[in-house]
Each structure stands twice: as C-alpha cells, then as structure tokens.
Design a protein around this nucleic acid. Structure first.
Length: 429
DNA sequence: TCTGGGGTCCTAGGACCC
DNA sequence: TCTGGGGTCCTAGGACCC
C-alpha cells in the first residue's frame, strides 16, 4: 500500500480575512473579531498578534491598546464566515475528492491517491486558486501524518520564507527536526496548557524532544492520546481521513446573556429558544434524543455577586425530536432549579441519548402513540421547511418570546455580504 | 460596565451481574 | 475466622480541539 500523504489547508486569521475581503480599508491595519456578546478576542490579524494581544483575551482588558493602535474591531458575523468557509471548501474540492472538513477554517486533503509527483507545487496551486476565487489566504502543511501536516502548517505560518506552503515529505529528517526544535509544545495537535506544564516539569521543552521521547513513558504521562502525538510526530499515521460526517453524540445550545437575567420569564424565553436551536440541529442529523439537561449559572467573574449554578437532568420516557415535547420538559426542569434573586449570566440545554430517528427504542411500559408521533413529525418538518425558506424565526413557539431583552450583544457587526440581498456590497462610482 | 460556544476522547471508580 | 474474579455499563472529571 502506498504511504498516505496528508495536506492541511488552514485559512489565515480566518474571521479577520473574511472581513477584509469586503472592506479593503482593513488591509495592512490591525483588525480583530470578538466572540458572542463582544466578549473575548477570537481572531486577530498579524498586526494585532504583533502587539502581543492573546487569543481568548477579554476585549475590555485591551481597551487601551485598541484605542492607542486604532484597532478595527468586529462582532462575530457567523453567517458571513460560514458562507465564506463553504466557498473555500468548494474550491478545495476541485483539487481532490478526498477531503475532510475539520473545522470552519481547516480541511485535510489526501494527496497520496492523486497522480502527482510534486506535492509542494500542487499545494502552491491550491493556495493561489483559493486566494483568487475566494479572497481568503491559506497556509498549507504537507506530511505523512495528520499531526505532522498540522506541524508543517505551523511552520508555514511561522516562517515567511516558505510562502505559505511547507512540504515535509521533501525535507530530510534532520531538516524537519530543526524546525520542530523552534516550535512551542502547544503547537502540537493534542498538547494543551496542562500537558505542556507536565512536559516542562519533566524537562521536555521542544517538539523535537517530544518526538524522540519514550513512548511508554509518554503514555503514562498523557495516556494514549500522548502516545499517538509522538507517533504522529514521527510521521507514523494514527488517524485516517474522516470524510463521512458522523452524527453528534450530544447537542448543545447555550449562550451568555447580553445583560444579566434576573426575571424568570426572560429565563423561560431563553431556555425555549435554546431548545428550539438544539432541536433544529437534532432533526438535521436525523436523530431523536431521550435525555435533556437544562443548566443556569450566575457570573463567576463577579465574586461579589451571590453565586448559584444548577442543572436539571431529565430522562424522557420516549425519545423524541419534537421541539414542543422537549420544550415542555426543559421548562419543567427550569422550574426545578430556578431560584429568584440571582443575576444569571448564562444558560443552556444539552440533548443526549441521541439515536437514529428511523430506529427508536420503545419503552414497553409506556404506550407509544403512533398517530400523535406522526402528526408531530409532520409539524416539525413543516417548521423546518419554513425556517429554511424564510429564515430562522419565521415561525416559533410563543414561549421563546418576542422582545428577547436577554439576547446577545453584537454592536460591531459587519454586513452579511454574501447571503442577504439587503446587505450586498455597495460600489460607489 | 465588560470574560464565547460547541464539541470529542480517555480514564477511574462505582454499581451490578454471574 | 472467614469475603473472588472477571466482565459490562454508566458517570464524572479532566484533558483536548477550533
């Protein structure tokens, strides 16, 4: 069998790049994109990174730097980013049928089954095409394992000299090790802050050292996950290309509130809305759920506020995908845990016990009404159809509320240039 | 005033079974 | 005076990812 060769295509500073495509005044100036509620920094242009501003930093802590350096700041525009992501993937599909969409801004491509001799040249072609067709700059790492392709990608980003494409299959081992020596431990797929600490405590400081560590010893320190890390760094592939989207094992919908909620009716509306979102996802993957968890919590960053957090776990007698059914349980759960007198900051629902909707496990002690279930399914289908045609919110349960005082803050939102006729790019002559 | 959201995998330990 | 061994399933917690 032929040795597998993977390429990891990663969009550079993806959200920032999306904003830049539609506003040339953003090029070459510092730009950042914030998380929901305009809370944390989730994307930074290179200019912002150079200022030492960290990923995930709360925006309010950087207020002075933002003013001082005239940083252009945006709320997350997921409608725009999701559509741009789709365009990038469509472009990549022109280069290989073997593609795994790993996240909104990353895809793995399998190169080894293609009839090409020069992977690096092919990578450059991909990079130029994606830039030309979508306006999004990408970096590409090529290697014999997914983990090493990720590392190659980091190298491409870190060292300008490569022009965005690094092909480890071309380099001799000592040359690769030279780069591994200059990377952070957390640049490795699977090493986060905790494992980094553990490794540092034991004298492992560079990725190169990690690569040549004793596998048994690493396994003891970091379980099999760590052992796989080491193997992948050595170019031994432990993960294959995953092309079929597997159905989720749990589905979550949660949000922090734009401002604290201390009224039960508002909380009921929020929970109802989250259930509706979660159920949409549930039906989209053709599943039923038989467990629903509702949780609420106060703001842990405010030590002077009275703190409270609780969750209600409910096992349903029958699995269902009906928003109406699940909302009823969720609100019942909320009744159990809601305590007045607190300032709540966040709430959410989780659906578990997911199973395919064409094969459900019934409960022999509880009668199953096929007629009602059939009607419910038809109703939900109609709801989903209307949402697709006229947009989310075209039809909803009254319990979701109309005003939504608690909804999230997004005061710096750009337009939905590619998905909404009212917000198309305007060109002035 | 202001700190995101949505996931997965692995392990240990308890309950339970024969 | 004396209390096994092996297995599965479930859950909580910890780690990671983007």
């Amino acid at each position: 069998m032929k040795h597998a060769i993977f390429a990891l295509v990663d969009c550079n500073n993806f959200y920032v790049s999306c904003e830049r495509v539609f506003d040339p005044s953003l090029r070459c100036v510092p730009v950042m994109v914030l998380s929901n509620n305009d809370g944390c920094i989730v994307a930074r242009s290179n200019e912002v990174k150079a200022l030492g501003i960290k990923m995930g930093e709360p925006a309010f802590k950087c207020r002075d730097l933002i003013r001082e350096h005239n940083i252009r700041v945006f709320s997350s525009n997921y409608t725009l980013y999701a559509d741009m992501s789709r365009r990038v993937v469509e472009t990549l599909k022109c280069f290989t049928p073997d593609i795994e969409i790993y996240s909104i801004d990353e895809s793995f491509l399998l190169f080894s089954d293609l009839n090409i001799s020069d992977y690096e040249a092919y990578g450059r072609n991909i990079r130029e095409t994606v830039l030309q067709w979508t306006g999004i700059p990408v970096s590409i790492g090529i290697a014999s394992s997914k983990g090493l392709a990720k590392v190659a990608n980091k190298v491409a980003k870190k060292f300008d000299t490569f022009g965005g494409v690094v092909d480890f299959t071309k380099l001799p081992e000592p040359a690769i090790d030279l780069y591994l020596d200059q990377l952070e431990l957390t640049d490795v797929w699977g090493i986060g802050s905790q494992y980094r600490r553990r490794l540092l405590d034991r004298g492992i400081r560079s990725v190169k050292q990690l690569k040549y560590s004793d596998k048994e010893w690493i396994r003891e320190l970091m379980t099999v996950t760590g052992e796989r890390c080491v193997l992948e760094l050595q170019g031994i592939s432990c993960f294959s290309l995953d092309q079929t989207p597997v159905s989720k094992k749990e589905i979550t919908s949660s949000r922090s509130f734009g401002r604290a909620v201390s009224c039960k009716e508002d909380m009921r509306q929020a929970i109802s809305s989250y259930v509706a979102r979660a159920c949409e996802k549930l039906r989209a993957q053709h599943s039923y759920a038989n467990i629903i968890i509702v949780y609420i919590k106060t703001n842990r960053f405010k030590p002077h506020d009275r703190q409270y957090a609780n969750a209600a776990y409910m096992k349903l007698p029958q699995p269902t995908a009906s928003t109406i059914d699940l909302t009823r349980y969720a609100l019942y759960g909320l009744d159990r845990i809601y305590k007045p007198g607190y300032r709540y900051k966040k709430a959410g629902v989780i659906l578990e016990g997911l199973q395919p909707d064409d094969y459900i496990q019934l409960n022999c002690f509880i009668p199953y009404d096929h007629v009602i279930r059939k009607r419910e399914n038809a109703l939900m289908k109609a709801v989903d159809k209307m949402s697709f045609k006229w947009g989310r919110g075209a039809v909803f349960l009254a319990s979701e509320g109309v005003k939504k005082k608690w909804s999230m803050k997004r005061s710096l939102l750009s337009k939905r240039f590619t998905t909404c006729f009212d917000e198309l790019l305007e060109v002035k002559i």
